[in-house]
Simulated scan of single mutants.
Amino acid sequence: MDLKDVSAVVTGGAGGFGQATVRRLVAEGAKVVIADLADDRGKALADELHGSAVFVPTDVMDEDSVAAAVTAAGELGPLRAAVIVHGGPAAGARVLNRQGERYPLATFRRTVDIFLSGTFNVLSQTAEAMAKTEPTASGQRGVIITTASIAGFEGQPGQSDYSAAKGGVIGLNLTAARDLAPLGIRVMSIAPGVFLTPAYRMSPEQAQERFGPMVPNPKRMGDPDEYARLALAIAGNDYLNGEVIRIDGALRFAGR
């Protein structure tokens, strides 16, 4: 997939993975919609990229909001790429706490809505827009990259909602790829390990000291640009389809 003179949507485009991916897409010649709720960061990034990107306030759980981002992308050029990398609040608690009280269903449902239902909302709407574009000479119309997590494979205590949501993203991947194959639209998923993003809510030094040593090699947390480079490699290779790629330095979590 040649990204020059086409458009792309990046949900969570003002965040750690998202910002890095937006910059990489722009460097490849794409026009990018930064779809996020972080107004200040989103506008600042769009300004920095001098017309190669626009910021569109986007709530991934709202169909009209996502539709506005997709429409904006179509105005920039044929939509050929979507990277779904938005974050969200991570409450995190065990199914039962030490007092034997259960984790609230409403909290569980919100996490699943953000990370799984929100992913499907963006995936389905960007696929619908891509399906209306003219195919390339090789019959391709676009690529959609979702973001799973190694927690979707190896959930840790207190991650029931997040692991369930990311496991759902993993399960969605192959089915969506097969559904969209007749239209020339590929679907891939990236499952990151521990990456140095604002989601950890601590200083980079503290995060590296705590999480870096658990990674086999390289013995550090991942850099968001490493995620972005993988996303670009996926976009550029038309034979990558229906697969989940772990990017985690060989990290495997054991239950505890």
Results as ranks from 00 to 15, higher is better:
Asp39Ile: 10
Val83Phe: 15
Gly92Asn: 12
Leu76Glu: 04
Glu128Gln: 15
Arg109Phe: 00
Phe108Thr: 01
Asn121Gln: 11
Ala30Gln: 04
Gly88His: 10
Ser138Ile: 05
Gln140Val: 05
Arg94Asp: 15
Ser65Met: 13
His86Met: 09
Gly118Cys: 07
Gly87Asn: 04
Val26Leu: 14
Thr136Gly: 14
Thr119Arg: 09
Leu123Thr: 02
Ala127Gln: 01
Ala82Ile: 05
Val56Trp: 08
Gly42Asp: 05
Thr126Arg: 14
Val26Tyr: 06
Val70Ala: 02
Pro89Met: 10
Pro135Arg: 04
Leu96Gln: 08
Ile114Ser: 07
Thr11Ala: 03
Ile84Val: 14
Phe120Gly: 04
Ala35Cys: 10
Ile84Asn: 10
Leu105Pro: 01
Ala91Phe: 14
Lys132Ile: 06
Val22Ile: 08
Gly118Val: 07
Glu63Asp: 13
Pro89Ala: 14
Ala68Leu: 13
Pro78Ser: 15
Gly88Ala: 05
Ala68Pro: 00
Ala69Ser: 14
Ala44Glu: 11
Ser65Gln: 11
Gly18Arg: 06
Ala91Arg: 11
Gly139Cys: 13
Thr126Asp: 12
Pro135Ser: 08
Ala72Tyr: 00
His50Gly: 04
Gln140Phe: 13
Val95Lys: 05
Thr111His: 06
Ile84Pro: 01
Ala14Glu: 11
Ala46Lys: 04
Gly87Glu: 05
Ala68Arg: 15
Val56Ile: 15
Leu76Lys: 11
Val122Gln: 00
Arg110Thr: 09
Ala91Glu: 08
Val112Asp: 06
Arg41Tyr: 12
Gly139Thr: 10
Gln125His: 12
Asp59Val: 15
Val26Asn: 06
Ile114His: 08
Gly118Gln: 04
Val10Glu: 08
Asp36Trp: 06
Thr136Ser: 15
Val95Ala: 12
Pro104Leu: 11
Leu25His: 05
Ala129Pro: 04
Arg80Ala: 12
Leu45Tyr: 00
Val66Ile: 14
Ile114Trp: 07
Ala69His: 03
Thr107Ser: 06
Thr136Arg: 15
Leu25Asp: 03
Leu96Trp: 13
Gly88Met: 09
Ser52Leu: 08
Thr21Pro: 02
Asn121Leu: 02
Val10Ile: 10
Ala137Arg: 13
Pro135Lys: 03
Arg109Cys: 02
Val33Thr: 08
Glu63Arg: 15
Thr71Leu: 13
Phe108His: 00
Ala90Met: 09
Gly87Trp: 12
Glu134Gln: 11
Thr107Arg: 10
Thr136His: 09
Ala106Trp: 03
Asp40Gly: 04
Thr133Tyr: 01
Ala38Arg: 09
Phe55Leu: 12
Val122His: 00
Ser138Lys: 12
Gly15Lys: 12
Gly51Pro: 01
Ala35Glu: 06
